[in-house]
């Protein structure tokens, strides 16, 4: 009797939860999954002319992708840039979160709001502001020339991979700061004190206690920065020049000027697959790492 009541209750919990979730799930299905399936099927078609697409099934677009050196290079470059951005963002943001979590006593909330505030302002404008700074007649060059330290502007600052990496590091900072802070804040400080009392050096305390305990935040930050930046379009388009071009810029071209929708769809699919594979590797490696450390 009691069991059947329980079953019924559990059933109604499930039904109630899913009726509340249904609008969100339908939205994801209709506006994301179905369009993505269609994108996948288009990657097996052929663009015949401007307006005409041959709908017979072929793997040719994927062969095209890997035969075009440019596309493969851009894919590798996108992954490389994202990797660098993720790494630099993590290393630079970690001490800041560490400071706020362990040393700031009053108004922690205010510090955090101030750290995340720039993130809410327009992405386009934040990227654009780096154009002002790094440009040939920009802030850095004009200041250095004025100060008499330079006679010619530094050209490597603008339209380069370096410019893209710097700008993305700035643009995605909040995505490292939040998860890192949340995981550091959760650490029980008595564990760190215990470590010190046991005679561990500061360095040992950090590597053996603090860092392993903050790993969930590190992993969160890695995924949440790496995945979207692989597909970034705005930054390489505004600041990348030819050196800092990424795969997204080519995908955009295939849907615009170059007009090859199937190849664009194949490139997008390959990008998504690459990201998925790397995500799986990262989460598996870190899972094992966490297990070993704890």
């Amino acid at each position: 009797m009691l069991q059947s009541w329980r079953k019924l209750y559990a059933k109604s919990e499930n039904t109630q939860a899913y009726s509340l979730l249904s609008p969100a799930l339908i939205l994801v299905a209709v506006a994301m999954l179905v369009p993505m399936m269609l994108m996948l099927s288009f990657s097996f078609f052929t663009q015949v002319s401007m307006m005409e697409i041959d709908f017979s099934f072929t793997f040719q677009r994927y062969i095209d992708f890997f035969q075009k050196n440019l596309l493969v290079t851009l894919l590798i470059k996108s992954v490389k840039i994202s990797f660098l951005v993720t790494l630099i963002t993590l290393i630079t943001a970690y001490p800041v979160c560490y400071y706020i979590a362990f040393y700031v006593k009053k108004n922690k909330m205010l510090w955090l709001v101030l750290l995340t505030l720039p993130f809410w302002t327009s992405y386009l404008l934040r990227v654009f502001s780096w154009k002002i700074i790094l440009g040939t007649k920009g802030v850095i060059n004009s200041s250095l020339i004025n100060a008499g330290l330079l006679s010619e502007p530094l050209t490597f600052l603008m339209y380069s991979e370096t410019a893209v990496v710097i700008t993305l590091t700035h643009a995605w900072a909040a995505f490292a700061l939040l998860p890192l802070y949340v995981s550091l804040e959760k650490i029980d400080f008595s564990l760190i004190e215990a470590g010190r009392d046991l005679g561990l050096s500061r360095f040992e305390v950090f590597w053996k206690i603090t860092f392993p305990l903050s790993l969930p935040g590190v992993i969160g930050a890695i995924l949440i920065i790496f995945i979207p930046t692989v597909g970034d379009y705005v930054t390489p388009a505004l600041l990348g020049g030819t050196d800092g071009r990424m795969l997204s810029n080519m995908i955009q071209a295939y849907f615009g000027k170059a007009n090859n929708i199937p190849l664009g769809a194949a490139s997008a699919t390959i990008m998504l697959t690459t990201v998925a594979i790397i995500t799986i590797i990262v989460s598996n490696v870190t899972k094992r790492l966490t297990q070993r450390l704890s």
Binding site: L38, P228, G231, I251, F255, A265, L272
Partner: peptide
């Protein structure tokens, strides 16, 4: 989470 350009292209 997924790159926005992919959502855009699919839509």
């Amino acid at each position: 989470l997924i790159p926005e350009i992919i959502l855009a292209v699919a839509l």
